[in-house]
Each structure stands twice: as C-alpha cells, then as structure tokens.
C-alpha cells in the first residue's frame, strides 16, 4: 500500500464516515429521548436523495403522495381522539397541521417540479417534503405506544421500515438514480484529488454537529430534550411535555436524514432501499460509541467509514461482513460492563 492509496482511502472513508456520523447522532437522539431504535432513519435519506434527482429531471417526486397519505392518516387518528373527547377546538389545529400543511407542500412541489428551479431551491423543496414526515411518523406509529418497552418499539420500527420501503419502491421504482453535483470542482492536494462534493459533505456534517451541540447546550428546547433523555419521569414532573419532545426529536432526525440524503445524492447511485444500509452503518457507529455519547458516536461512525473504505481495498467481498462483525465485540463489552438496571418501569 502506497501513501497515495492510503490518502485516497482515508479521504473516501472520512466522507462516508461524516454521513454515518450524522445518522448516528440522529439515531442516538431519537433513542435517548423516545427509546425508539429508529430503523427507518435510512428511508429519509432515500426519500430526500431520490426526490432531489427527480426534481432535477423535472418530474414530480412521489414523496408528496407519501407525505399526504401519512398526513391524512395522522389527521384521522388525531381527529378520532378529539371527537371522542368532544374537544372540538383541537380540530382546526389538526386540520392545519396534518392536512393543510402537507397538501400545501405537495402543491408547491407539483407546481415547482416542471419549472426546474436552481438546485438550492430544489434542496429546500426536498427538505419541505421530507422533514414533516418525521413528526407525522412519530404521531402515527410511536406516540400511541410511547410507554411500551424498547423491544415493542423496535418491532414497530421494523414495521414502519417495511411500509416505507414498500412505498419507496412503488413511488420511485426499482432503478437507481443519481443527481448532479452541487459543485463540480476538484482540488489537488498533493497526489490526492479531493472533490468539492466530499468537502461539502464533511463541512455540512461538522456544521450540523456544531448546530446540534449549540441547540443542546444553549436553547430551552435542547435542554428539555436532554432532560427527557436523562430521565423521562423526572422531566415530566418538572413540566416538560414528553410528547412534544418526541415530535421534536423525530423532526430533527428527519431533518438530519434529509440533509444526508441531499449530500449523498450526487456521490453515488441510490436505490429505493439504499438508505436502510446507510442508516444501519450509522447505527453501527452509534453502537461503537457506546450508544450514549454524541462525540463517541461521531467518532465511532468515522471508524466505520474508514474501516469500510480500507476493507473494500483489501477484501472487497467481505466488506460488509467486516463492518457488521465489529459490533459483536462491542456489544459483548457493553453488556458485560452495564450493571443492568431496568430503568424503563414507571
């Protein structure tokens, strides 16, 4: 192995690692706040990346239908609850949030799609389509079971994952898509040529991580999220609305997923089910970091990215095996170290 191959592989590993780090943070956030192991995190990547490619081609992405269907389902659940409690005053808000908003976004996208706006505007449209899916999913699938065990929530996650992958296949089709690069430039750094897109990925990841850190440290919502993550009962006792924190964490997770999708769309060919594997690697990163600390999760994801790129050089057929085997010793160590407290009961 020569120096330039080493540098190439490192560059590749860091680029992928940065994406995994973002996903690891989202998974960790959702897990600590709601105890949901959020398997469908990867679907946000798929939806965002494929929507971006379709918008570029001037076509209306199927994401708007997914958004409207999910919105209507959430509205039906909310409205049913409100009617049963005869809380008529809640109805306008429900309609506004779960019907008017998704339909408005869908209409906007359908109007904008054939006009082929600038790539930045398309990215914003993608965010507008994908991000609301986070809280809506939480409302439909997780909020009714918010106090169930981690295992039940995990099974729900699997179900949500399969539903979303199915919808993805219906609306995006089986063939892969790839979008244009935001910035086509390349920089020579010694022997290594770094593409502007990978600089984008790393810079955006670092910026997002800093923003999250700022949110957690400085804002009241961030502090409330942290409090909920530490102790749900305690947080509720001091008046933190747990349900709202759930919505907020899913909103952030969807946002992070969508951004990752937009970042990754020009780098590789994405299929309707690619996101799952990317999300899974973010999950491995989070586990390597001990599933409890944000900096360690980011570091773990970087390790996953580098390991993946080096193993693809040495033994490409066993790449995934190597990456996923990594979690076994880590899990063994975690379970030996933990003094097993069932803190979930109330």
């Amino acid at each position: 192995m020569t120096t330039d191959i080493f540098l190439w592989l490192t560059q590749d590993g860091v680029t992928n690692g940065a994406i995994y780090a973002l996903l690891a943070l989202a998974l960790l956030l959702v897990f600590t706040v709601t105890r949901v192991i959020f398997v469908p995190q990867g679907e946000f990547i798929t939806f965002a990346a494929l929507s971006l490619s379709l918008l570029e081609a001037g076509r209306t992405p199927g994401t708007i239908y997914i958004l409207m269907i999910a919105g209507l389902a959430a509205a039906a659940i909310e409205a049913f609850g409100a009617l049963r409690e005869r809380a008529w005053r809640r109805l306008p808000r429900i309609v506004l949030l779960y019907v008017v908003l998704p339909v408005a976004v869908a209409a906007l996208v359908a109007w904008a799609a054939p006009r082929r706006f600038d790539q930045w505007i398309q990215a914003l449209l993608v965010l507008a389509m994908v991000v609301p899916l986070g809280p809506i999913l939480y409302r439909i699938a997780y909020q009714p079971l918010a106090n169930a065990s981690v295992l039940v929530l995990f099974i729900v996650s699997m179900a949500v994952h399969y539903v979303l992958t199915g919808l993805s296949l219906v609306f995006f089709g089986g063939e892969g898509l790839r979008s244009r690069a935001f910035w086509d430039a390349k920089f020579k750094l010694g022997v290594v040529e770094i593409s502007a897109q990978s600089i984008w990925v790393v810079a955006a990841s670092v910026a997002l991580i800093l923003a999250l850190w700022f949110l957690f440290e400085r804002s009241i919502y961030g502090k409330a999220l942290r409090a909920t993550a530490m102790n749900r009962v305690g947080a509720r006792l001091v008046g933190i609305p747990i349900v709202m924190m759930g919505h907020l964490s899913f909103l952030l997770a969807a946002f992070i997923g969508a951004v990752s999708g937009i970042l990754i769309a020009p780098i590789t060919t994405l299929y309707y089910d690619t996101g799952f594997l990317i999300g899974l690697k973010g999950f491995v990163g989070a586990i390597l970091g001990g599933m409890g600390s944000y900096p360690l999760a980011a570091l773990g994801s970087l390790v996953v990215g580098l390991l993946e790129s080096f193993s693809s050089f040495w033994a490409s057929a066993f790449k995934e095996v190597i990456v996923f085997t990594l979690i076994i010793p880590m899990l063994a160590w975690l379970s030996l170290r933990s003094h097993h407290v069932e803190e979930e009961e109330e």
């Binding site: 020569t2 191959i5 190439w8 592989l9 560059q11 590749d12 680029t15 992928n16 994406i19 892969g176 990754i264 780098i267 590789t268 299929y271 089910d273 690619t274 594997l277 990317i278 993946e308 790129s309 080096f310 193993s311 693809s312 050089f313 040495w314 490409s316 057929a317 790449k319 995934e320």
Partner: peptide, 21 residues
C-alpha cells in the same frame, strides 16, 4: 483482480484503487 461490491454501496473507491494499482 476479483473485486466485489454491492448494489447499495455508496462508494467503490477501495476496489477501484486496487484495480488502478
């Protein structure tokens, strides 16, 4: 060379470098 990748892979840099080598 006999390099392998999966359809869902996000990067084949390692494999390609090996081929280039």
């Amino acid at each position: 060379t006999n390099e392998r990748y999966a359809r869902a892979d996000t990067s084949v840099t390692g494999q390609v470098l090996k081929i280039m080598a």
